[in-house]
Structure formats: structure tokens, C-alpha cells
Nucleic acid binder design. Structure first.
Lengths: 144, 144
DNA sequence: GTAGTTGCAAACGCTTTGCGGCATA
DNA sequence: TATGCCGCAAAGCGTTTGCAACTAC
């Protein structure tokens, strides 16, 4: 449960208040859907903010390591980042435009089932990830 | 719904009956868990079967394209392949040893919920993927 | 001043491609 | 003998690393 306010990120993590960190903070503060490094580069380019991609990668790793971001790697799509590890781990993925839409799911649904699975397979379950693949509203309309 | 018998793969796909194709057929015929290119190279090495990795990649793509294999790319682990696209899409992933264990789940559980999600987000759901992360039996014992 | 941060170039690992040669049907 | 398949080398792509320079505190 962190604050996505860029300045608060720095005070929480006791790290320096740099241009890149602030810029990334603003992006994740204002972006609802998980984004890729390419997306970030695009945004920075449109803002005329010149920054080396190495620094972006490094900062994303840093923020992920410090539980500010959540790294998502899923079937076929490129690595995405979203704010805060405590977010729901369920997504809708549009297989036409590769958009990821985070959704909230009542995890109660899995309770009974995951207990069964855990026992049957002798497997300790720590977390789960549920993804629905299909077509988003826009792509349905565009007949893409 | 294909037959995993190597010779039947060839007759179904009307493709040539090559050493590599037969060898991969046998591997997937006998392997229950999804495996990586590195795993396959390992197996071939142990069998003293010399084959170029390019050919392995090409053959896996070919079999995937022809619905004989299922390509799995998930959170943090390397790409894996398993026989047949129609297999259940639910897995247990051990975050210690990276093993993937396919499991059967009663998809009825999701029926109501996925209908709700579909309506709420104006999203046509085609398929879903459910993954449980945790520790397998072996890794629990090894205190790794 | 000094750690934390950056840019650049180079390396990395996994995967794909181009092409000439070989083997299966 | 004619495609389909193969090996090899090289390139592609996203990501990481090493190092020297810089800058926030």
C-alpha cells in the first residue's frame, strides 16, 4: 500500500529525487493500465524528455525491487509495469491490440478450489494469476 | 484433439518423417509437464542425438503453428512447450525450481464471474489462464 | 565530498533469418 | 528429382553490465 505520488515514492524509498524518477512517478500515477518500456520511451519522446533507455530499465528494476511497481510477463505480450505490487492480479488481455486491463475479482471464488488443488498436488500456493484473453470494446467495433 | 504418436503427427500434418520430428514427438508423447528448449537440448544431449538448436526452434514453431504444441510464456519463467492446444490452461508454478505442473480445474467456477466481467468491461472473453504460484512438494522438503 | 544516478558502448541470452546443401518421399 | 528440412553463421531484439562522468544531497 504505497502512495504513487512521485515525491512520496522518494521519501518512502529514501532515494534521490531525480528527473527520471519523478517522470516515471507521474506516468504511473496517471496511468491505469500496465505499460511497457516502449510505451514509456514513447511518452518521454512526446514530452521531449531525453533519457537513455538503460536508465529506464534500471529505474524500473529499482522500483520493482522496492515494491513500487509490479512487473508483468504474460503469454505473447511484452513485459509491462504497473504501479504497486498489492494490486489485483487479474487482467483482461486483448489479443488484437495487446492492451492489458486490470480487473478486480472476488478471490473468494478460488478459496475452496485452491485448497483442493493444494492438497491434491502437495503444493503450497502463495498467489495466483488469472487472465482472460479476448477482444476489447474498441477492437470489437473496428472489426480488426 | 490430436494423437501425440510421432508417426501420426506426420500423417496428420502431411509432413516429412524426420529424425528431429520423431524425437520431439517421443519427448512430448512421454512428457507430462511443459518443457523449454533448454530441456529439449538436454534430453537430446543425453541421447547422443546431435541436432542444431535452430532446427529445434523451427520445429517447435512448426508444431505450434499446426496445433500440435502449446507455447506457454508466463511470469518470469522461460518459454515452455507442451503437447496439444486443447490441454487445460491452468498450472501450478513452483517459484523455487520453476517447474510447471498442469492441473485440471472445473471451469464452471468461472462461468458466472466471467460473464459479469465480460458485461462490465464490454470485453469478449475467448479463453482464460489461471496460474497458482508457490512451492512444489520437493522444494518444500529441501527447505530451498 | 560522496554515494546515488546517468550515458554510452558493449555484451548478453534467447530467438529468428538467409542461404547453400542435404535427404525424404 | 523436387520440396522440405537441415546446419551454420549472422542478425535481431529486449535487456543487462561495466565504467567513467555527473549530480543531488
Amino acid at each position: 500500500m504505497f502512495d504513487s505520488d512521485p515525491t512520496k515514492i522518494c521519501s518512502t524509498l529514501k532515494c534521490r529525487h531525480t528527473k527520471l524518477r519523478m517522470a516515471l512517478g507521474h506516468i504511473f500515477h496517471n496511468t491505469k493500465t500496465p505499460i511497457s518500456v516502449a510505451d514509456i520511451q514513447q511518452i518521454f519522446k512526446s514530452q521531449n524528455f531525453k533519457i537513455n533507455k538503460t536508465s529506464i530499465y534500471r529505474e524500473l528494476k529499482f522500483l520493482t525491487k522496492n515494491y513500487m511497481l509490479n512487473e508483468i510477463q504474460l503469454d505473447g505480450i511484452s513485459t509491462r509495469y504497473e504501479f504497486n505490487k498489492t494490486n489485483p492480479k487479474s487482467y483482461l488481455i486483448c489479443t488484437k491490440c495487446d492492451q492489458i486491463i486490470p480487473i478486480e475479482i472476488d478471490n473468494q471464488i478460488f478459496e475452496t478450489e485452491s485448497q483442493k488443488i493444494s492438497k491434491k498436488n502437495n503444493f503450497i500456493i502463495n498467489r495466483h494469476s488469472l487472465i482472460f484473453f479476448g477482444h476489447c470494446h474498441k477492437c470489437q467495433q473496428n472489426h480488426l
